[in-house]
Design a protein around this nucleic acid. Structure first.
Lengths: 192, 192
DNA sequence: TCCTTGCGTTTAGTATTTTCAACAATTTAC
DNA sequence: GTAAATTGTTGAAAATACTAAACGCAAGGA
């Protein structure tokens, strides 16, 4: 993984936009072509902006992701700056000598979150068919380290580090370290 | 005017969707073609769903309206049932013997509106280059009658009748009666 | 090293869309 | 009423998009 950070895509740069979306969902041109029922060559040409696809083709392709035309033109796929936070970037919201509440991402912007304590043994992996579901998702590493992939971004998170992202962006968790990893995670709407 | 009520358009019925949008903005195929720099034949074929336009063509066409691709696929152009209300359909929210407050459209759904008293002399007309601006707009007829056109819909409103619509849908007011028309109107965000 | 596999790209041919021009139907003007 | 103008539609030619197959390249595995 570890794709270079993509720039913002304008509405009329369909090629870059499609490529970005495809990469975010972890698909190759051939795999997407297979799902969509078009040829990989067509996708290649579109992504290079050497042709302007017909609506019917574009729709077929997006159906393979899947993504609606409206979402394709509406959504902002540029990675948010606020996906990752270092331990130092967490907001202390209630400090007492025996306890500390540190909030991920400045302020809880009216989000209703359920919270979990998870343990990943060394080698544990949610798999490379990346997870994807409704809602938002948030977590903080307690001990050990965890490799987290969110769309095109990937980071190894260490104790105190955290993540926050929309769950409909494909994501994956792996413990590539040698000790168990404990993290506190939260999701919305609460699924557990 | 007085176009038959169009049905809801699905995302993949591009033809009907384009036709509806074009009619809402009061353009002929030829006029839109001229603005967009395509031929009228192309628009005709697209509207009949006999071809699936390329993104570049569709974008050129929408630029002639103008409308973004995102808006085209996102916006719900089907006329809301809640555009027009008869006097009897207004919601009485605070009745006292000496005063009555009647609300247009069930409930104020968190909308911030500015309000005006307008008078249209007989023959007055906001013109057929239809008005279009951000925000929402609302009004109620006090005396006289007023012909109001909103997108594809047109109605002659009499005292007590009212309207409520999004201001980015083209609209027009005309007094085709023989006495002055007084109405109370409101808009958001307040522009006066 | 060699072979295999999988990636994005390219090319030539086919399929589709778009233009251009003419058409029929309706409206506007005289 | 007729003529002129305007509307949406259509057919053949030109332009463009899509397919199928091959290419070059890089990464693993014997």
């Amino acid at each position: 993984m570890s794709v270079p950070l993509p720039a913002e895509t304008s509405t009329d740069d369909i090629g870059t936009r499609l490529k970005l979306v495809r990469q975010i969902f972890g698909l190759t041109q051939r795999e997407l072509a297979r799902r969509a029922g078009v040829t990989n060559g067509a996708i290649s040409l579109i992504e290079q902006n050497r042709v302007s696809p017909s609506i019917s083709s574009l729709k077929k392709i997006l159906d393979g992701i899947p993504l609606t035309l409206a979402d394709f033109f509406t959504l902002d796929f540029s990675p948010s700056d606020e996906v990752f936070f270092t331990a130092a970037e967490l907001t202390e919201i209630a400090y007492q000598p025996e306890m500390s509440m540190r909030l991920v991402g400045r302020k809880a912007k009216g989000r209703a979150l359920g919270m979990l304590r998870e343990t990943y043994q060394p080698g544990a992996d949610t798999g490379d068919t990346m997870l994807r579901h409704e809602g938002e998702e948030c977590g903080i590493i307690v001990s050990g380290s965890l490799t987290v992939t969110v769309g095109v971004q990937e980071r190894v998170l260490n104790p105190g580090d955290a993540y926050y992202f929309r769950s409909d962006i494909p994501h994956r968790f792996r413990n590539q370290g040698e000790e168990p990893c404990v993290l506190i995670s939260a999701n919305s709407p609460p699924t557990f």
